[in-house]
């Protein structure tokens, strides 16, 4: 494995060729917020929270989908980046209906967490208050589109890990929505195996077990590494992850 050297926040660091910027940044102990990214799923670059600034061109690139390269120089917390990250979070809160006090994930939600971390103490934009449905037709799970941030972790895990590809996305822009099969009720989906992987990786209160009420939903991400290690390395070692440790 070839070693590369680059500069992060004016410090020289070395990484491995092919390594993502995000993993290299985190190896340095630098906290970079992410929402669509989840270790074990393919990076998508959708939420833009992990944007970093190229020193040479001032261009912004998502760290999760960018490969670290020899000689690169980046900033992770410039004034502009901090400002944009807060704006992104405010827009996420304004776009759908987030009422943490009555949400299944209250206290364990990644969106709520990132807002607190960044110090987003209020939303400066008008709330859009869209009319969005819930689908509780599945025996075990329910989706509340009011809480979905379109990270597409559910789409990804159902496709690449479970192999069912029940989830997909329809529509454009603010009208985008995750759908099951060809936009039919989840309960009538013939592709869904009811494995629950989508529920476990969802960062917000959008996907939850049926019967969980306010602040009751706990999610586990550790299963993902368990399955992937088993599949790829024939190793079964339990890691910790998910929303259990929050709050």
């Amino acid at each position: 494995m070839a070693v590369i050297t680059m500069t992060i926040n004016d410090e020289l660091v070395s990484g491995v060729e092919g390594q993502s910027l995000l993993s290299l940044i985190r190896e340095q102990g630098i906290e970079l917020p992410t929402l669509c990214h989840l270790e074990g799923l393919e990076a998508r670059g959708g939420c833009r929270l992990c944007l970093v600034e190229m020193q040479s061109t001032q261009r912004l690139l998502p760290a999760c989908t960018t490969t670290a390269q020899e000689g690169m120089s980046i900033q992770t917390h410039s004034e502009r980046l901090v400002r944009y990250r807060r704006m992104i979070l405010e827009l996420l809160f304004a776009e759908r209906n987030h009422v943490c006090a009555v949400c299944v994930m209250n206290g364990r939600c990644e969106l709520q967490d990132e807002a607190a971390k960044i110090g987003m103490d209020h939303v400066r934009y008008d709330y859009l208050v869209p009319e969005l449905p819930m689908d509780a037709t599945h025996d075990k799970f329910a989706i509340d589109h009011n809480r979905c941030i379109l990270c597409t972790r559910c789409v990804s895990v159902c496709d690449s890990v479970e192999g069912a590809h029940t989830w997909d996305v329809m529509g454009r822009g603010v009208n985008s929505r995750v759908i099951t099969d060809l936009n039919q009720p989840w309960g009538s989906s013939r592709s869904c195996t009811s494995c629950g992987k989508c529920v476990q990786v969802c960062p917000t209160g959008a996907l939850a077990n049926k019967g969980s009420t306010v602040a009751e939903m706990v999610k586990r991400h550790d299963f993902l590494q368990w399955i992937l290690d088993g599949r790829e390395k024939k190793q079964w070692v339990m890691h910790n992850g998910g929303s259990e440790g929050r709050r």
């Binding site: 987030h98 009422v99 709330y127």
Partner: peptide, 18 residues
């Protein structure tokens, strides 16, 4: 000072906005 979520975000009080 906006004191609590209803003042800060509208929160439960704003559920009727739909």
């Amino acid at each position: 000072v906006s004191f609590g979520d209803c003042a800060v975000t509208g929160n439960v009080t704003s559920l009727r906005n739909k």
